[in-house]
Amino acid sequence: MNEFIQHTINGLALGSIYALVALGYTMVFGVLQLINFAHGDIFMVGSFIGLYFIRYAIPNAEPSIFTAIMVIIAAMIGSAIVGVIIEKFAYRPLRKAPRINILITAIGVSLFLEYGGQLVFGASPQFFPDILPRRLIDVGGDIILDSNQLTIFVMSFVLMQILSFLVFKTQFGRSMRAISHSLETANLIGINVNKVILITFIIGSALAGAAGVLYGVAYPKIDPLLGLLPGLKAFIAAVLGGIGNITGAVIGAIILGLSETYVAGYLSSTYRDALAFVILIIVLLVRPGGLLGSKKIEKV
């Protein structure tokens, strides 16, 4: 039982990182119907921006909540800029092109960021410094609560709250939801589609950047190919919850994080990566819209 609770805690921390990345996937899919394969690599870029920010901008900072927030904000701004550049130069010229072209471009951008990252950051893994005062809290009964996990969970929760306010309570959110219903109609009723898409990319990339730093806190070894697998899993989480659905992305990510830690804990860690894909296939075959997605099955 204690082991189970320990796995649950680990799973929730992992799931909340996936959730931040999955939100970006689901938002971009909502407005553009595009699987933004480069999103996982923006997550990686965020992680590295955080690393370089600590190393060069605040080299003497003590690990504290304040430092962590500064690093996260820096990573969010940096990733948002990267996101804007990608949207402007790679995706915008293709707005009218067939979807597969945009998909290939996304793969191209992903490769570009990975190999560009190897060029700029170096291919070998780097150590992500402590930005939080780490404490292991013994809750009793062999359950150890890592304060980092708690911070990750709380910070993701706060960011998600901000996002849900943006999407459900503001004018921008209303336009964004309108576009995800129908881009053409939204255009007709006077929504500046390009602007909204740009802001969507900014928000999505900023969340991915924050997730990158939190990932660095949880698994302090980062390299330019780190975005590949978490990116793909976050995407699966988004599909699981119902792609295009914001609440669904969070629920899907938590489910995925939990089930991965359970499989790694009770079965075998080599099957952990397969699990995500098994979930993906089952969901798509049984309930193609995802858990919270619309019932509309994409048929002929």
Binding site: A90, I104, T105, I107, G108, V109, L111, F112, Y115, G116
Partner: peptide, 8 residues
């Protein structure tokens, strides 16, 4: 990097 750029 050039390969990826060519693709884009």
């Amino acid at each position: 990097v050039i390969y990826a750029l060519t693709m884009i």
